[in-house]
Each structure stands twice: as C-alpha cells, then as structure tokens.
Design a protein around this nucleic acid. Structure first.
Length: 857
RNA sequence: GGAUGCUUAGCUCAGCGGGAGAGCAUCGCCCUUACAAGGCGGGGGUCGUAGGUUCGAAACCUACAGCAUCCACCA
C-alpha cells in the first residue's frame, strides 16, 4: 500500500543503482532497431548546472521513450577535457598555493590536471545518477582517452595531407593571461567605456599638423604608416609626405587607401600591421614590416623604448601623459566601444601576429552547405536554427586550432632538430632527431569528432560505429551551434561521408526568476541538487522539460516546481486510490468492449485519443504539448470525472469487476505515458500495481487501440459532466451548500441509462423524477444542459430560461451570419461548413425547446 | 550595420488561420472515506501599435515601437 503522501526522498532511493545494476541502460539487443544519442560531453570544470539538467533530461526522455517503443537505444555518456577552461581552473587552484604552471613544468602540471579531472568526473557521475539519465556506462568516453586521441591524430594528419591544415603567421586573438591563441568564437565582445585619443602628427616638409585618433596608443610603436582615403580632399596634398609618430619620433609615410572611412575619427588612420587584423591586411598589401611591440603577456617589448617592460595599460597612461606634455595631444574623447575578452580568463584579448596552425574552412563549409540542400540534410528542431548554421558556414574564417596550453591533445607535428623541417605524423618519429610541437589542439577539435570517435572511429569496422552511426538525434543549446554543432557536421561529413546525426533538437537557456542569465558574477546560479532535495528529481525533470517552448529560453520558477510536485502527488494518490479499490483479490481480465457501460467507454475513448496525441507530440519533440495533453486527461477526464463517477458503478457488484479492470488499465497507462519524464515516481507506482514486471523499464509504450474510440460515449460522458457542473454552479450562485439536497426532473431522453445514480450521488439529489416516455421531451435548465430540470420556482425558471435563450440566440446569430456569407460558403473547407450547419441545427433545436418550455409556464 | 526571437489574464507562459487557454495568484463555498501539497464554483484579456492579405487573423504579410539574443565592424 502506498503512503498517503508522495515522498520523493523515499521514492528516489536506490532506483537508479538498481536500473544500472540490472543492465537496463546497456545497449546491444540486435533483435531491435538501433537508436543512438550521444551526450554533449560536459566539461570537467565544475558541477553540472540547471542547463545541463535540461539538456540531459531532454535526451533521457527521448532515450526512455524510444526504449519503450521497442528500439535498442544507445545513449553514450562521456566528458570533455575542455582544454583551456580546465587549464584555467587548475592554474587558478595552483595560484592559490602560490605556484605557477611554469614552476611545475609540463609533466607535473598534467598530473595535477588529471587529478582535477578525476575529482570532477566523480562529481558529474554522482549528478548524472541523481538526475536519472539512462546512459550506457560500458561505453563511456573521455575526449583525452586513447581511442579518441587516435581519432584526433588521424583527423589532424589527414587534413594536413589534404592541405586543409596549414601553419601560418596571421593575426590571431591572444589571451595574455593564459598566454595562448584563441579562435574567433572564444572571444566575447562587450561594449566597454574607453578613450579615443586624438594626437597631433607633425608633417615633414609642411607646416600642417595631421590629427590621428586611436584607442590604443601603446601600439603606436608598431605603426608603419598613416592612411587616408584617396577621395578625402582634406589630406590630398599630404599623401606621399611623412608624418612624425609622436610616440617615438619615427617618420611614417602618409598613404591613401579606399579602406579608410572618411567620416570616422579625423579620416586619418594609423596602421599597425602586427596588432590589428585590418591593418595586417594593409600591411600585406603594401609590404610593410610587421612590428610587434607587445610580448606574450601583453607587456611592452624593446620596440617601446623607455616604456619597455610596462604593462600595456601602464604604458598607455604614461605615453599619453608624455605626448600631452610634448604638446601633441589634441583632445580625448570618451567613447563606448566593443572590446574582445577571453571567454575563459576574461582578459582583454590582444590581436597579435603569431604563427599558428589553422584549418582551412572553405572546402569543409562548402560541403556542408551543399549537403544541407540535399535530402540527407541535418534537420533542425525548431527549423529556424538551420539558418544560424548556414550563416556561419557562409562566412567562416579559417579556424585557429593551436593553443599554447598543456592540457589537451598535443599537435602531432614534429620538427627536425637540424633542418627545422616539419613532419606531421600519427606515429612519433625518432625523438632523437625530432622535437614535437609544444602546442595542443583547441578542445573543440576533439569535440567535433564526438559522435563518431565515441563509437569506435577511425576503425570503420568497429561494431558500434557500424550499428549506431550516424546517430539519430542531437540535443543541445543554441549557444553552441557555432562551437560544436557546426564543427561536428563538417568533420562528420568530411570523414564519414555522412552527417553525424539526423536531427538536431535545439533548446534555449534557463534563466533565473528575474529572467537574467545565471552567472557566477551575479551569484544567481541555482544548484540542481538543492532543487532536487526540495522538490524531487522527478518534479525538476518535469518542470524543466515541459515548461518551455523548443528553442526559447525559460525561467526557473519555484512555483512551477511546486506545481509539478503537486501533479505527481495527484497521480500518486489516484494510483493509491485505484489500488485500494482493486483490493487483494483483483484479477486482470481482458476487456470486452461490448460489455462496457457508457462511462467506461467514455474514459477508454479519451485514453486512446490521449495516447495518440501524446505519442505524436513525443515524435516531434514537443514535450510541453505532449505533457499538457496527458495532464488534461489525468486531471479532468480521469481524476475529476471518471474516478468520481466510477464510485457509483463500483457499488454495483455486477459492474464492479469490469470497472476495476478499466481503472487498472487507465492508471497503468497514465503511469507509462508519464514515465519518460518522471521515471523514479513512475517506477515506484508501477511496482505497486497488482501485476507488473521487474521494472517499468521492461514495459512497452501504451498501444493505441482504435476500436476503443467512441465519439458517442465521449459525447454522453461530457453531457453528464456538464449536467453536474451546471447544477453545482447553480448551487454556488445561490449560496447553497454543495451538498444541499435537491429535487430534479429528468427527461426520458437523458443521455444514457442509469444516469440517475450519478446525479443522485454527485448532486445530492434527494429525488429524481423521470418524466414518462413521450411526455415532457427534453428539458432545459439554467445553463446549457438538456434533459434536466431543477425543482425551482416559476419566476426563477423563467429568468433562467430567458438567459439561456439569449445565449442560444447569440450563437444562432453567429452561425447564420457565417453561413449566409457567400465567401464562407464558397471558400471555407466543407467540413468546416458542415460543422457550422450542425451547430446551427442543434442550437435551433435547443431554442425550440426553450420556447416550448417558456410557453408552458 | 546584418540576423533571429519575444510582446496574450496580476505574474510566468502555451496556443500560431475557424468561437481566447494553463499554472500560480485572487474571490466564494467545502476537512465529500485517493489527494487540504486537496475538492467544487467564480472573477479577470479590444492577444504591443498601425496598415494589409483572407469568407474569417492572436495566429499570415508589411511598417513601427519596446525588450532580448547572436553575428560583423568600430583606426
């Protein structure tokens, strides 16, 4: 017997371990069709947050649903080494101990990183268990494990040999704190306040003074020219002359190029080819020297003369002061401008000329663009997110993949100690002759291979790869479409000739109750474990997957969690009640439809249509709609109506056994339909049913039975519900107690036989008069209900009938207006017209009855 | 500068071509033997603004406004 209240702590206890131990999460049943989902591997940088819960629970719902539908489901778990992110964390931890990574050296540092990894992997495992995700642990992978490292090497070497990876000197984004290069997507731009310094440049051989503005005076030591627009009349006479750099007194040629915007600043621009991407292009075009004046920590180097050794901002301040003192500062403008910050260290990114490894993106992107036009394209849910992918693919720049870090896949490039010649190879050459490249790969380089590297690739004969690839569905947030989804697609297509997944389900972010992004700086993050302790994991799973629209952000809400928990409590108690009704000696019988009464037919018909609707929404990943259909059925049709009504028929010994069987079927199927969302409580309820397998995980999804569909029974049931509702409303409006006794008159045309019993019980009718056949016809009472009349006074009845008449007339008017519209008749679908006609007829009949009643008063 | 999304009841949000919905809040009545973490019954919305398409628009189109996000540029 279930307890009176649903206690999530008791319910959750031991279930996950049991499922895991029994092997329910393991894939490999060859008698079934395969279905595969890979987890987006969480970073081993910290605890999982609510975003992870939304992500993994969504996958888990799909996995559990598909298992019930008879698929051999492989849900692959794993984690990401998260190169720069993890290294930043480990370094931060070391810094607290007063140690830098350089103090430790590469090897010792990596030991520390692995310790960190283990610590956080344990944490993540605990959280996965708590959340209940049904992953196959026998296939768990880590991006730095051996197999995945093989895949990484294979990809790097192949791309290199195909000319799609090259080493080059370009302007990259440099993180001076972590001292590594970054890719474009790892730079976060924010609008920060800053200064726009207008400096005076003396022009050689002229008495003119040229005013040039810059936001970064410290880079003036790397300047090689001043540019103006060739159409700019103000400066036409100066082109070809030289201006004196007020920072170091060097003469700079004044040149003209279309690139310069006449209206921006003074229209004259300094050119720093080694510290600005646009200036770099100009530098290439005009063959300038590339003068770096900053080192890898963003400190001034020897080019900065007396400022050498200063931090870039320190130098800026000192330099501006010196220029001002020399009388060369025109003015300072305070501006808001976009500044790039490192995603991980938040340091202001320094664009810097640097030799790095790049992936040539054009050919890879073109293949994706082509594939997305074919029938084998990756299908996005919601569809609009495909545009995000296409836009990125259309505008890709080469991908800087080398990182000056230690934690990651070391680049398989080797340099001949004598000649310096590069050798790129999966196998290390004789290390007496060669040294390996010091750098590691961008962490996304390995994540990009995740859907196939986890399944055994590059061994294309690996059983999992053959059976489960391409995977079926990828679930992830819109925030990593560029980082991850796009890269998996191009690598997948390039290396396996197939898109790595058929469908991509994109979800939004979870925000705090005020709608703000959860962030460490705001301190508004919510720990999923706290939520689980308070409301239970099932309530969290239910809330987080059914209160959002695909692709849109959602807000965390304590209220909605409480309401989710209340819903589970409702089902808990409905089950408890049904079980108490079934009793010890309940026998399951096959339902013979012919033997069933109206209300049993009603609830079964509603159940079947619910199954159909829920299933169709599950298939299109519309979990909010699916759960809403189920919710309505559970509350309105089952708990509020049928469960109550069945109390009448259960008293009838002849009917009791059939009713029990119906109750059993309905409650069981409710539990099964809900199970993918809230597996813990559903397992508990399932196991408490009189007949069950070892676990709900052995069950199949409820089967839609078309023959149980009965519009007639549904209509009759709804009429009864409406009669009850109307009389209750009447009582409430008259300030009568709900259980105040009444006398009712029932028409012989009442919806179905035996209806009096229900009216007696639920309306507290002390007497029900049934009019003799052929006399009285159908009756109309107060609301819209036919077939029923209250024993009330004449005046009241008159008022009530008139009110009713008014409402009906409004409806008739509406229908007639529609049906007399030639446009409607000509263009509306014929089913719609038929429905309107039917409504009109019904209402006309009602009106006639009301009038007949009125005439008799 | 380009793109996308949002604007619906007091709050949080569904609905996205055929009579305005849910949860919570609110008001009234009920400890009715599954559930007071409950039940029953109410009140509450010219669906951001203005045009257009359509027989019919909250829904489709266009413009505008506000909010949010992403991309690019910013010497």
């Amino acid at each position: 017997m279930l307890d009176k209240h649903y206690d999530h702590n008791l319910v959750e206890k031991g279930k996950y371990e049991n499922w895991k131990d029994k092997g329910y999460f393991l894939a490999g049943d060859k008698s079934k069709d395969p279905f595969c989902i890979v987890i987006p591997p969480p970073n081993v940088t910290g605890k999982l947050h609510l975003g992870h819960v939304m992500d993994t629970v969504t996958q888990d719902i799909i996995a559990r649903y598909k298992r019930m539908k008879g698929y051999d489901v492989l849900y692959v778990p794993g984690m990401d080494h998260a190169g720069i992110a993890t290294q930043a964390k480990v370094e931060a931890r070391l810094r607290k101990e007063g140690v830098s990574r350089y103090d430790l050296g590469r090897e010792k540092f990596l030991e520390k990183a692995w310790e960190w990894k283990k610590e956080y992997a344990d944490f993540i495992h605990t959280q996965w268990a708590k959340v209940g995700i049904s992953v196959d642990y026998s296939r768990e992978r880590f991006t730095l494990d051996e197999g995945l490292s093989e895949a990484v090497k294979k990809v790097f070497v192949t791309l290199y040999n195909e000319g799609l990876i090259y080493q080059g000197e370009k302007i990259i984004n440099w993180d001076p704190e972590l001292r590594t290069a970054l890719s474009n997507v790892e730079v976060i731009h924010s609008d920060d306040p800053g200064e726009f310094y207008y400096f005076k440049y003396r022009v050689e051989g002229s008495d003119k003074v040229l005013i040039v503005a810059t936001t970064r005076p410290e880079t003036m030591f790397g300047d090689t020219a001043i540019f103006v627009n060739p159409k700019d009349k103000r400066y036409a006479d100066l082109v070809g002359k030289k201006a004196i750099n007020p920072a170091n007194g060097e003469p700079l040629p004044i040149m003209a190029d279309e690139y310069v915007d006449i209206d921006f600043g003074t229209g004259a621009m300094k050119c720093t080819p080694a510290h600005d991407p646009n200036d770099f292009l100009l530098g290439k075009k005009y063959n300038f020297p590339f003068i770096k004046c900053l080192d890898e920590c963003a400190k001034m180097n020897e080019k900065a003369g007396k400022y050498q050794g200063m931090d870039r901002y320190e130098c800026r301040k000192a330099l501006v002061k010196d220029i001002e003192e020399a009388g060369n500062l025109d003015h300072i403008e305070h501006i808001i401008h976009s500044v790039g910050h490192s995603e991980r260290s938040n340091a202001v990114v320094e664009p810097m000329l640097s030799k790095q490894w790049f992936v040539k993106m054009k050919p890879l992107a073109e293949r994706v663009l082509k594939q997305q036009k074919s029938k084998d394209k990756v299908e996005f849910f919601p569809a609009r997110f495909e545009k995000v992918l296409l836009r990125w693919m259309n505008n890709v720049e080469d991908w800087c993949v080398s990182r000056q870090l230690w934690w990651g896949h070391r680049i398989p490039a080797y340099y001949n100690k004598e000649t310096g010649e590069v050798l790129v190879s999966e196998k290390a050459p004789d290390m007496n002759l060669y040294t390996q490249d010091e750098d590691v790969l961008d962490t996304w380089f390995s994540s990009a291979l995740w859907p196939f590297s986890t399944l055994g690739w590059p061994n294309t004969e690996a059983p999992d790869f053959k059976r489960y690839y391409p995977t079926d569905c990828l679930v992830t947030g819109y925030d990593i479409i560029f980082f991850w989804v796009s890269r998996m697609i191009f690598q997948g297509e390039h290396f396996t000739d197939k898109a790595p997944f058929k469908k991509v389900l994109i979800h939004g972010l979870i925000r705090d109750e005020q709608g703000r992004k959860m962030s460490k700086t705001l301190g508004n993050g919510i720990d999923p474990i706290d939520v689980i302790d308070k409301y239970g994991v099932d309530a969290l799973r239910y809330f987080i997957t059914t209160n959002s629209t695909p692709g849109l952000d959602m807000r965390y809400s304590d209220e909605k969690l409480a309401s989710s928990e209340a819903y589970l409590n409702k089902i808990w108690n409905a089950t408890r009640y049904v079980e108490s009704v079934l009793g010890e000696d309940f026998k399951e019988e096959k339902l013979d439809y012919k033997d069933l009464d109206t209300l049993e037919r009603f609830i079964l018909s509603r159940l079947e249509s619910t199954i159909k609707k829920v299933e169709s929404k599950m298939e299109s990943y519309q979990f909010a709609s699916a759960s809403e259909y189920l919710y309505d059925f559970v509350y309105d049709d089952f708990c509020s109506f049928y469960l109550e009504m069945s109390k009448v028929s259960l008293n009838d010994e002849k009917k009791a056994s059939k009713v029990k069987n119906v109750l059993y079927k309905v409650i069981k199927e409710i539990i099964l339909l809900l199970y993918p969302y809230t597996p813990f409580v559903c397992e508990e309820l399932y196991l408490s049913l009189p007949f069950h397998k070892d676990s709900i995980m052995e069950e199949t999804y409820p089967q839609y039975i078309a023959s149980f569909h009965s519009p007639k029974a549904e209509k009759e049931g709804m009429l009864l519900a409406k009669m009850i509702k109307d009389v209750r409303a009447y009582k409430a409006s008259k300030k009568m107690a709900p259980n105040a006794p009444l006398t009712l008159t029932l028409s012989p045309k009442a919806p179905f036989k035996g209806i009096e019993d229900y009216l007696t019980r639920f309306l507290f009718a002390k007497e029900i008069k049934v009019l003799p056949e052929g006399k009285g016809d159908s009756l109309v009472y107060n609301g819209l209900t036919l077939f029923l009349e209250l024993d009330i006074g004449k005046g009241e009845l008159l008022a009530s009938l008139n009110k009713e008449k008014e409402a009906i007339l409004f409806e008739i008017n509406r229908s007639e207006k529609m049906l007399s519209n030639p446009g409607f008749l000509a263009k509306a679908p014929k089913e719609k017209i038929a429905v309107e006609r039917e409504k009109l007829e019904e209402n006309k009949a009602k009106l006639a009855e009301i009038e007949s009643r009125l005439s008799k008063i």
